[in-house]
């Protein structure tokens, strides 16, 4: 539980960079007027797991690289932190895709 709290703290720090970028990327969904919402989910999810995540890692390294020692002193390595944070993003994407499937089913159902 203690380690999970620390992981969430790190994850939140990365999301601060990743989220605005991914929300911007989700606007690409507007290019498909037929499926704006699902298009936005696709753009957001893709960015969250790729470009947005890499950008967040880069910015965190540039601005707060020394902060990794905050986690090292709790026996959390950088690779573990990054992998766990990516896993949390993947979980969020999974939830969004479930929502997308539900929306798709509701659309075709009507």
């Amino acid at each position: 539980m203690h380690q999970l709290k620390l992981l969430l703290h790190y994850h939140k720090s990365l999301l601060r960079f990743n989220l605005p970028f991914s929300l911007l990327a989700s606007l690409t969904g507007c290019m498909f007027p037929q499926q704006v919402f699902t298009g936005m989910i696709n753009g957001f999810s893709l960015s969250l797991l790729t470009g947005g995540f890499i950008l967040a890692l880069y910015l965190f390294e540039q601005r707060h690289s020394n902060q990794y020692y905050f986690y090292y002193n709790q026996s959390l390595s950088k690779i573990y932190l990054i992998a766990a944070s990516y896993g949390m993003n993947a979980l969020l994407v999974l939830l969004l895709f479930t929502l997308k499937l539900y929306l798709y089913a509701a659309q075709t159902g009507s």
């Binding site: 703290h9 720090s13 020394n66 902060q67 020692y69 905050f70 002193n73 709790q74 026996s75 390595s77």
Partner: peptide, 29 residues
């Protein structure tokens, strides 16, 4: 450092999360 209970290290430069309150840092740590 990967094995709990062995070593801790105070680096030369500050390692605290700058945007967190001290109270929260203590509770988290």
């Amino acid at each position: 450092y990967k094995v709990p209970g062995q070593l801790a290290y105070l680096p030369q430069h500050n390692f605290l999360p700058q945007d967190s309150k001290l109270d929260k840092i203590v509770n988290l740590y």
